[in-house]
Design a protein around this nucleic acid. Structure first.
Lengths: 147, 147
DNA sequence: CAGCATCCACATAGATACTG
DNA sequence: CAGTATCTATGTGGATGCTG
């Protein structure tokens, strides 16, 4: 497999770098993964202060890239649910090391976990598989807050 | 450590997301890591067709974020060398899973490794520690090209 | 050699208002 | 509920030409 090579290629990343570099993309992938399925307005709440336009645009991009799946139910009022594709789930796992790096690096000058940030559920990452009983923590884990 | 938590926080990532989302940032971090030390013009060659302004801007951002270090030598003609800080080295490691994900995902629609890409050294990632004798491969590893 | 200055084109995100 | 339409502000990268 790839692990056997001592060299890798950035080329495949190029196609996706445009997507993951969008301001909200990783956050959206993360929060959908936190819940498995999420509706539009719930997504807005979870993300904090994103405009419907920006969320709509980004969701379309993520669908185009095959990272997010959209299920529309013909009901009144309409119901739409977003979930991660297999690729989306994998991406969410692949960014964990990046998260850990960001959480432990020494030269951080800008934002850390502050009270305002802790109020935004999308900033929390559920590493374990979601279950009925599992609830998201109301604050950042202490291990990170102490950084 | 962090591994013991079942939840993580995105907050620390927020500060850097602006940096790593810049078009050339990850590529620059990667290629400097490939060589340990690189000069400005060499960096330009390795990156393909980046303008000096863009390279200059991005390098400044990376320095401000504590990911890249700049060493200036008072010589004529002037010599400047860029290297990764400890954080930069760690970041370069942290993006490897992302690379692997991008290389193996199923729904890729856009760019893969093509001849044009293979001519750009910065797209290649040296996983092993650089040494005098180690040379970069002239093409992408087959395992990736076959995707 | 290693850049900076200037100008330009385009993409992205937000605010606000409106709709099937 | 789940968006769309429109406008605007800002960011980001590229081209070109010049400099210590």
């Amino acid at each position: 497999m790839l692990e056997e090579n001592t060299h890798m290629c950035f080329c495949p990343l190029e196609g996706v770098i445009d997507v993951i570099s969008k301001k909200w993309a990783l956050l959206i992938v993360n929060v959908i993964g936190n819940y498995e399925r999420l509706r539009f307005n719930k997504l807005m709440q979870e993300l904090g202060y994103i405009s419907p336009k920006t969320l709509s645009d980004t969701l379309k991009e993520l669908q185009k890239e095959g990272l997010v799946k959209k299920d529309t139910f013909a009901e009144i009022p309409p119901r739409v649910e977003y979930s991660l594709t297999k690729d989306g789930v994998e991406l969410r796992k692949a960014i964990i090391p990046l998260l850990k790096w960001a959480a432990t690096r020494t030269n951080v000058k800008k934002k850390k976990c502050d009270p305002a940030c802790r109020e935004i559920p999308a900033h929390r990452v559920r590493l374990a598989a979601p279950s009925e009983k599992d609830t998201m923590p109301q604050t950042c884990p202490k291990a990170i807050l102490k950084q």
